[in-house]
Simulated scan of single mutants.
Amino acid sequence: MFTLLAGRDRGTARDACSPRLMTAVPDTVQDHRGIQLTVRRAWPANNGRLTIEALEEATGHLRAGHLEADGTVALTPFGEDSALPGLPTAVDAGELLVHRFTKRAVVKTDGAYLKLLPPRKVARVIAAHAMASELTAAAGITTPRVTDVDEGTLTLSTVPGVSLHDLGRSGGGDPGDDLVTLERAWSLWAEHWSAFAAAPPGEGRLPFYRPEDEAETLTTWMTHCLDFGTLPVPAPALRSAVDDAANHLLDTSLQAPVLSHRDLHDKQVLLSTGSTGEGGLGLIDCDTLALAEPALDLANLLVHLAFREAQGLLSAEGRAVGETAIRGVAEELSVPEDRLDAYSGSTKLRLACVYAFRPRWRMLTRDWFHDALL
């Protein structure tokens, strides 16, 4: 049986020797000059602190920094990060989209994206992009290419198309036409994804992401929520649900692994239509490619659609279109229903824990958690 004692022990040890954040992630913070910012996302860090990403309400500038355990806010100036030396130059050239303090940043420019990383991580990411391009090409999938490198700044080619997420959002057009477009997009995804997953690379080229790894990832996020008090549900209920989900992952036979994205959701998949009507599929954020059971990616995508509906970002009809395509691919890849259920259960709880660190969605995660138990 998979137990959570290790996770509880780690949490108890941290509580005994380090401070705990006084409250859950706040909706807004102020910097030392009194500038008001809306907290967009947060991640657990060490010593009871959070790494935060926040928007200046007056300028829309994205800034990053830490929220200390005592509630003190420490934010860097816009476009600055000592661990990302190329960031000031990059923000002068485009729009800052992502800034996870000391970890990474993404800037959109005309015709390219700039990914800013600590210099020590550059070689690994370049290798990951090269392998992704090679492995996905056989399935007719386009991924970003590294076109230039300058210390910790990688220039990435754009991937044409519109994401499944954006296609699924209501755009004010005719609902019938929107659904037809969405059905075509999901059909194209299904056609390519079966080819992608059915031809895994040779052993030794990619890590094997096992059910034990997924259970450990879920347990880690549960521990974060317990340590920071972010998920508004009783701690015993969270521990019990995670324990059940982890055991479900481990109590049935594994399906043979296939090539997997490992973080597949509707924002990662882009669809485009050529001048002659043919369609193309693009895939981004491929740094985590691995071998895994096909249920891992399919469940992650399936559950994200349900969460988008709960967020009010996708209609029930749009969700149904995507689910039909995903389940069709699951059938084509002979995914057992119990494996899809196991990974879906884990993904539901993991999303609740991750989004509990995003103030806009924190209260939604309470209802989502209880729905996950049904």
Score class of each variant (00 low, 15 high):
5 L>N: 12
13 A>M: 09
17 C>Q: 12
24 A>W: 08
30 Q>D: 15
30 Q>W: 05
35 I>M: 10
36 Q>F: 06
37 L>D: 03
37 L>K: 08
41 R>T: 15
48 G>L: 09
50 L>Y: 01
59 T>F: 09
62 L>N: 03
70 D>P: 02
71 G>Y: 11
87 L>T: 09
87 L>R: 01
94 G>P: 06
95 E>F: 08
101 F>H: 15
103 K>I: 11
110 D>C: 00
111 G>L: 07
113 Y>S: 10
117 L>G: 02
117 L>F: 00
125 V>E: 07
136 T>D: 04
139 A>D: 13
140 G>Y: 04
150 D>V: 09
153 T>N: 02
157 S>F: 09
161 G>D: 04
166 D>H: 12
171 G>H: 15
177 D>G: 04
180 V>Q: 14
181 T>Y: 05
191 E>W: 01
193 W>Q: 02
194 S>R: 12
195 A>N: 03
199 A>P: 03
201 P>R: 10
203 E>Q: 11
203 E>T: 12
212 E>D: 14
213 D>G: 12
221 W>D: 12
223 T>N: 05
229 G>M: 07
232 P>T: 02
232 P>Y: 06
238 L>D: 09
244 D>F: 05
254 L>M: 14
256 A>V: 09
258 V>Y: 06
258 V>F: 00
261 H>G: 02
262 R>L: 07
265 H>E: 01
265 H>K: 01
267 K>M: 13
269 V>A: 00
283 L>V: 09
289 L>C: 08
291 L>I: 08
293 E>M: 10
314 L>T: 03
316 A>P: 03
321 V>K: 03
323 E>H: 14
330 A>F: 09
336 P>L: 05
341 D>K: 12
346 S>H: 09
348 K>D: 12
353 C>P: 03
361 W>A: 00
361 W>P: 04
372 A>C: 07
